[in-house]
């Protein structure tokens, strides 16, 4: 029996994990159906667009510009080892658009938006505001979840696009300002090197990461425990889950787009 105990523990953990995955999948499905069926809450959707999109621009911009600049320095230093310093524009462009732009924006959204959504909805649950919504004939999935997830689906790809451009601009500023690159040549190399698939993959990743970030915030908020500790756990869990799922989704999407 003692020998079987670890196996039992492992089995229970696997079953619990599978059950959680199933519940999250059903929640996601329910969210998608609520996004398509009326009533629609325009004010909630507008506020979510503002909060997730417009108010995230500063953190996205700063993250992208520093990352682009650092990337240019790294590629220049690394490329110098085999006389390939000239590839800085191309590698900065491809690195930002295909990988760093979407992933960093996704992680920043997980940190800023997922946590905020989870804490807000969890607090609403703890203070009976969710119950109040139900008694006022308002479905919380439609009023709280669907507008936030739809807004993230729409606005995060735009943030990724902005992050890509600012990241490339950061690389451009460093390369032309301190590494001696010609500005016109740098821009031409960047534009010539990028393909449509690079940009499409970046935007698709943005959609997926936005969906994951908002969904995790809503899921953990709606399923939070009681009291301040419950809100804290929901917030922490949402950010952890969103970050890991974004990185996992990035791996899968990168494989799907570029392993052919």
């Amino acid at each position: 029996m003692i020998l079987l105990s670890p196996i039992g523990t492992l089995g229970r953990a696997v079953l619990q994990t599978l059950a959680s995955v199933g519940r999250v999948a059903l929640f996601a499905l329910s969210t998608l159906t609520h996004m398509l069926r009326p009533p629609f809450y325009g004010r909630e959707f507008g506020l979510a667009l503002l909060n997730i999109g417009w108010l995230s621009l500063p953190v996205v911009g700063l993250t992208a510009i520093f990352t682009g600049g650092a990337l240019a320095l790294q590629i220049y230093a690394g490329g110098a080892r085999f006389n390939a310093e000239a590839v800085v524009p191309q590698i900065v462009a491809i690195g930002m658009v295909r990988e760093l732009g979407p992933v960093l924006v996704g992680l920043m959204i997980a940190a800023r938006v997922t946590s905020s959504i989870a804490a807000e909805i969890a607090t609403m649950k703890v203070t009976e505001q969710i119950d109040a919504l139900v008694t006022l004939s308002t479905n919380p999935m439609k009023y709280l979840v669907a507008p936030r997830v739809l807004a993230a689906l729409i606005v995060v790809p735009l943030l990724v696009a902005v992050g890509d451009v600012i990241g490339i601009a950061g690389g451009y500023a460093v390369a032309t300002g301190s590494l001696g690159f010609n500005p016109a040549t740098y821009l031409k190399n960047t534009v010539d090197f990028l393909e449509a698939l690079d940009i499409v993959s970046s935007l698709v990743k943005g959609c997926a990461f936005g969906f994951i970030a908002a969904l995790m915030g809503c899921w953990f908020g709606m399923n939070s425990g009681r009291g301040a500790q419950g809100v804290g756990r929901a917030t922490k869990g949402s950010v952890e889950a969103a970050a890991v799922l974004i990185l996992a989704a990035n791996f899968l999407l990168t494989g799907a787009f570029f392993s052919l």
Binding site: L47, T123, M124, T127, E128, Q129, D131, A132, V134, T135, L136, S137
Partner: peptide
């Protein structure tokens, strides 16, 4: 019918449960 049923009710919650936003 859920909506018609709930439309007949009003509820005062213990903590008020007012929407902060």
């Amino acid at each position: 019918d859920r909506d018609a049923f709930l439309a007949r009710f009003g509820m005062l919650f213990q903590g008020g449960a007012l929407f902060d936003s």
